[in-house]
Simulated scan of single mutants.
Amino acid sequence: MVTVNMLKAYYIKEETEHIRVILAYQYFSVLINQRVYQFIPVEAKEIHINRSTREVENTEDKFAFQKGKDIVYMTMSELTALPDFLNQLNTIAEPYYLNESTVNRNDQLNETTIMIDKLERQNLQRLIDKSLDERNESAFYSLVKLL
């Protein structure tokens, strides 16, 4: 029987689409057959979670746990099969998940940025046309460099 004894994040890295939960010694331990095994960062040492879907993505990574000289390896898919692991992981990652309003706000910001870029480019093209009409060669070359 395997249960999670303790799960704390050593460090959390927030990226645009992912949350990376970095693990370290003494922050993660499991109880296997009534014996506490401490996490050791031999192979995998972080958990990748998709911020939108809230799913763990590195399911094939192997995590090592040690008790004395005995080392036990468990894959992320084995760990995610443990309800207490998922509960503790969700508690850690909850503040970093994207909610629908955040996604909508980001989409609106992207649309606004695209529109501003388009308007700036059109304005630059008008200024180039104006410099051609006025036969202003230096203005023309400096504006073309900005395209």
Rank of each mutant, 00 (worst) to 15 (best):
E14T: 11
F65K: 10
G68S: 03
E60N: 11
L98D: 09
D129M: 07
D70M: 06
P95C: 13
A64T: 08
N33W: 04
I116F: 07
L89C: 02
R126A: 07
Y97K: 00
E78P: 13
V4Y: 01
F85V: 01
R35S: 14
A139V: 13
I92C: 00
D133L: 10
E43D: 09
N136L: 08
K8R: 15
I116P: 01
E46N: 15
Y96K: 11
H48Y: 09
L7T: 00
T53M: 13
V21E: 00
L109D: 10
K67M: 08
E111I: 03
Y97E: 01
E78G: 12
F140N: 14
D84V: 02
Y37Q: 07
I19D: 01
Q122D: 13
T112A: 14
S29Q: 10
T102K: 09
F85G: 00
K13Q: 11
Q34S: 09
S138P: 04
D129E: 08
A24C: 05
M74K: 15
A81S: 11
K67Q: 06
I128Y: 05
V30E: 00
I47P: 01
I40D: 02
E78T: 13
F28P: 00
E78C: 05
L146F: 06
N33Y: 08
I128K: 04
S131H: 03
E60G: 03
I22K: 08
E120H: 14
T16I: 10
E120M: 13
S52H: 09
D133C: 10
